[in-house]
Amino acid sequence: MQKKVFSRFTIILFIIGLMTAIQYNTVNEPNSRDTRDVWEIRQELSREKQLHSELLSEIGVLDETLLKYEAASVDSPEQVLQSTVKELKEQAGLTQISGPGIEVQIAPSLEAVAVGQNIEEIPPNLLIRFVNEVNRFKGLSLSIAGNRIVNTTAIRDINGETTVNTEPVGRPPFSIKIIAGTLEEIERVYNFLLASPLLDDFYVENLSVKVTEPERDLEVEAYEEQLNFEYLEAAEGE
């Protein structure tokens, strides 16, 4: 009888120990192993630091605007409001802007012209890729063939024509203007484009790309269409 009880007690202890061991392994072992090397982890850390810096910069701008309102709440609140509206229009691309910039000139390649190949319009997906590559740099202002690029810009094929903001780009040649906040920033964009493999994709489409050297004062056109506020709603005050 005692032997039978002892056997049962041993089995119960074994089951408890097994369950404890399984639970311990489940808690201490991650579901997936991180296989990234040191370089990849450093890149991810660099991106997070850059994002953190951008957020701090945006917070600083908002704090500065709030201090302006508080300082001018008695004397000239209208003037501060007008200044803020002007800044917002500039950020939205609704005003003409000038500053340090470069011009990317798109033209038919010399080889295509020499052999008499028919030069087609630039594919929309190639323009989209170009804009996405350039927008890795923050705070830039762009225009394509005189059409300002804003947050609502659509680059697409409409009835066989490549359009920007529903306006046809037309066959090359045309230019893309890029403006940055400082000369140092536009020089980084300039060097990035010179080394970018994306330029080879233009050559495949029988197009040549010439990136002009940075200028101190380049002008980018304003967005001329009406912005769509269909899906915007006014924020309710607390």
Results as ranks from 00 to 15, higher is better:
L126A: 06
T162L: 05
P173K: 00
L126V: 03
R171L: 05
E133K: 13
I178D: 02
T153E: 05
G181S: 07
F137N: 12
P173S: 01
L126N: 02
V189I: 06
L194I: 10
V164T: 02
I179L: 11
L127G: 09
N165H: 05
I155Y: 03
G170E: 00
R171K: 15
N132S: 14
R156V: 11
P197L: 05
A195F: 12
G116K: 01
L126S: 03
R148L: 11
E120Y: 02
I149D: 09
T162P: 02
E184T: 13
I186L: 07
G146Y: 09
P172E: 00
E133D: 13
I122Q: 01
L194F: 10
L127M: 12
I128M: 09
V189Q: 10
L127A: 07
V115F: 05
V115M: 03
N135W: 06
P173N: 00
S141H: 14
P197S: 08
V134Y: 12
R148T: 10
N125Y: 12
P172Q: 00
R156Q: 11
N118E: 13
E185R: 10
E167T: 15
T163R: 06
N151M: 12
T152P: 03
S196Y: 05
A195K: 15
N118W: 04
I149A: 09
E167D: 10
E187T: 15
T162S: 02
T163Q: 01
K177F: 09
F174Q: 02
E133L: 15
S143K: 06
L127E: 04
R188A: 14
V134L: 15
Y190A: 08
N151G: 14
L194T: 07
I128N: 10
V115K: 06
S143Y: 07
A114N: 04
V131G: 07
N159Q: 10
S175K: 09
N165V: 04
L183I: 14
N159A: 11
E120D: 12
G139S: 12
A114G: 00
R171E: 08
P172F: 00
G181L: 07
F174E: 04
I119D: 00
I186S: 07
L140H: 11
G160M: 04
V115E: 04
E120N: 11
I158S: 12
P172K: 00
K138S: 15
E184C: 02
I122A: 07
P173F: 01
P123G: 01
F130I: 05
G146C: 11
N132Q: 15
I158D: 12
G139D: 13
L142F: 11
N159H: 07
G139L: 10
G160W: 03
N191H: 14
E161T: 06
E185N: 13
I178C: 03
R129V: 05
E187M: 13
K138E: 14
L193T: 09
V134I: 15
A114T: 08
L199D: 04
V113S: 04
L199A: 06
L193P: 08
L194N: 14
V164Y: 03
T182S: 15
G116H: 00
V134A: 15
I149F: 08
I144E: 04
A154Y: 09
T163L: 02
Y190I: 09
K138A: 15
A195Q: 14
F130R: 08
P173T: 00
L193K: 10
F192L: 08
L198C: 06
E120V: 03
L193Q: 09
R171F: 03
V115H: 00
G170Q: 00
I144T: 10
T182C: 08
